[in-house]
Design a protein around this nucleic acid. Structure first.
Lengths: 118, 118
DNA sequence: ACCAGTAGTATCACAATGGATACTGTCGGA
DNA sequence: TCCGACAGTATCCATTGTGATACTACTGGT
């Protein structure tokens, strides 16, 4: 999960790696998925990913911000308020993320069937 | 890169994670991408990913095999010959991997433009 | 006799990632 | 007055991922 990978020297398959680099890392894919439905505040995301620690979430969100996939808006309020939204580039991942979601669901179904048979 | 993750407790976004789990890890996405074009032998893959070490490749291939995405066929020959091909489930990733490839290319173009402007 | 190609494994070491826990400061509500 | 919500930081430690290097065993070619 390098912020910007130094070298992409793997020739032909490379662009695949570029994309994976941005959305791998434990929670990033899921965060993007949730943000597809609209802007969320920090603790809203937190509630959607109960098993992620606070530290992990901020880290992943910061990385997404660095890559230009997520826009972070801080309101000068008390109590603090921070909104997270997808940038245009982030939203352009929609097709991929939705495809991964659908595929994952099918995979889970398959696994459940195998489990049931055994 | 857990072989089979124990728990998927992240509620709604979960299937996204399931999919990412299978294809993250430095080389797996790219390996699947190359295998979309057809069966490859070990050293053929190696030549396509010159910056991956031999050990890394075998590990990633083994994990893909464990997940049921890749079929590994060993021929009882000398010199040894091992073929790697996508299983049906592996091939069902085609849409996603191609989408990632296309997106990655667009991203690289964008980055190049920014670079050129600066 | 020697070398390259085949598909790996073994060992060691380091860097990156992930997670647990505790802490910040202000506000509104009970 | 004390507590919880807000959006984080700081610190430390364990786990994983990744990489470098060296090794196996056999064969065919020069």
């Amino acid at each position: 999960m390098l912020k910007t990978k130094k070298r992409y020297d793997c020739a032909a398959g490379c662009p695949v790696e570029v994309t994976l680099d941005l959305i791998d890392g434990k929670w990033k894919g899921v965060i993007v998925y949730h943000l597809l439905s609209g802007t969320l505040r920090f603790n809203e995301i937190r509630r959607k990913l109960p098993s992620a620690t606070q530290r992990m979430l901020t880290r992943q969100l910061r990385e997404l911000e660095e890559c230009g996939l997520v826009l972070r808006t801080v309101y000068a309020q008390v109590p603090p308020r921070v909104d997270y939204a997808l940038t245009e580039e982030g939203r352009s991942l929609e097709e991929i993320v939705r495809a991964m979601h659908a595929w994952g669901e099918r995979r889970l179904e398959r696994l459940a069937q195998v489990q049931a048979a055994a």
